[in-house]
Each structure stands twice: as C-alpha cells, then as structure tokens.
Amino acid sequence: MDRRIAEERFFKGLMYVSLFIVLGCLISVFAIVIIKGIPSLNISMVTETPHGGYYLGGGGGILNAIVGSLYLAAGAVILATIISIPTAWYLQNFPRSSRFASSTRILLDIAAGIPSLIYGAFVFLIMVFLQTEASLFWGIITVALFLVPLLTRAVDEVMQTVPKKLMDASYALGATKLETVFHVVTKQALPGILTAVLVAFGRGIGDAASVLFTAGYTDAIPVSITDPVATLPLAIFFQLSTPFPEVQERAYASGIILLVIVLITCVGSRYLSKKFTKYCVK
C-alpha cells in the first residue's frame, strides 16, 4: 500500500516540476527579452525609419519594419481568408464522415505542417522563373500560401463543432445545404473564425523564414506593392548579426515591440471572440 502511495506522490511531484519548467521557460523568455531590451527602447524606435549608418550605431528606428510587417501580415491574412473560408464552406457540403472531405482534411493538415521556409523556397523558384524581384507582393503571396492550410483547417474545425441539430432545424425550415452553411453554420462559428483569423495574423507577423527569400529588405516604408519590404523578425535578425553592441541592444528592443504586437493580437482575438459569442445560439 505504501509503495502505491509513494508512486502516486512521486509522479505527482514530477508533474509539478514539469509544469514549473514549462511556465518558467515562458516567463524567462519574456523576462530576458524585456530586461535586455528596455534600456535601448525609446520613442524614435517606433516613429523613425533607420537613418544613414543605423546598422553601425547611427540614429533612427525600425518604423520601416513595423509598418512592413503589418502590411505584409494584413495583406496575407486577407488573401488567405479569401481562399480559406470558401474552402471550409465547400468541405461543410459533405457529410462529416465522407471520404473526400476527410482526405482533403488530411492533405491540408500535412500542408499545414510544412515548414514556412519551404513555402519561401517554393515562391522563390516561381520568382526566379518569372524573373521578378523580391517585393511586398511576393511576400504577401508566400505568407498567404502557408497560412491557407492552417486557416482552412482552423475554420473547418470550428464549423464542424456547430451542433447537427441546429443544421437539421434549418433544413426543416426548407433551407438548402449552402443556405444553412452560410446563414447558420457560419454565423454560429463566427467567434471561432475571428480567433482563427487573428491567430493566423500573429503567425504571419512572426514568421521570418518564409519571407527571407521573397520580401527583400529595405530601410524605406514601401509605397507600392512592388517595393521590397522589411519585416520585424528580419530586422531583429539583421540587427543581431551586426558586430556592434549598441545595434544588438536595439535588436532586443525590437524584440519587445514584436512581443507587444503578438500579445495585442492574442488578447484582441480573445476579446473579439467573446464579444461575438453573444450572437450565437447557445
């Protein structure tokens, strides 16, 4: 009897230790970036583009990268939504056990697991084939491509949780399949769809590997879709690769800015989904 209780205690202790490690890691990620970044965080970081010699320690900020990342992520999320939501609608047309729908879902799951770097390499090959230069446009295409499977599956999962009874009620009133999908399923799934879109936005903002080849890098804020564009993660990466400590410290400060944007997206998605839940049938 004693042995069994000791075993219970032992494993419970291990669980506490594990959870402590996980939460401790999260806190230290935040803490170290904030502690190291705060000293060089100032208002010109977010209001100015890099001046001449910025990467040698000159003045300026990383407004180019902040705006660039927002343009890129917003464009990509809009494009990805335009493709993903109709795909999810299409999948709802099939019975939940249908072979076609489930194999499409598996394909999308696999595509969602492919590293974003590969999407970058793929779009880069297309760009070489068309002989065009890296630009905001190709950056948006790349990020949108890797968001499509993620977003489609997330939206599809939310739509699948809509109770069957609700759809039956709609059919009983004479609605067609698609009318039910548009007016009942989509409306009911709206909070979840919003969350999925904002999570996708967060992924788009944070991803560096995919736009490394395709979006280029510039110190100016892009004025057209054919301009190259800087992104925040790459700005951090490049500032960190300089040999000057004061520029590296700016990378830590840029890290704080990126964390803040991701946090706002995260909190915003929770708030919005809560707000829209009141329009759902409970």
């Binding site: 996980v22 944070g206 960190l240 830590y252 991701v262 946090l263 929770r270």
Partner: peptide, 21 residues
C-alpha cells in the same frame, strides 16, 4: 491560455532568448 500564448511567440524571439540566456 498561457500555453496558447507560448505557441504564438515568434521563433525569432526564441532565438533571441537563446542568445541572451
């Protein structure tokens, strides 16, 4: 939600964490 947040942190931040700590 904390674990969800951890999954949303961009990879470059983890790189920064690695270099700093």
């Amino acid at each position: 939600p904390v674990i969800d947040l951890l999954s949303g942190i961009p990879s470059v931040i983890f790189g920064l964490f690695g270099i700093l700590l």
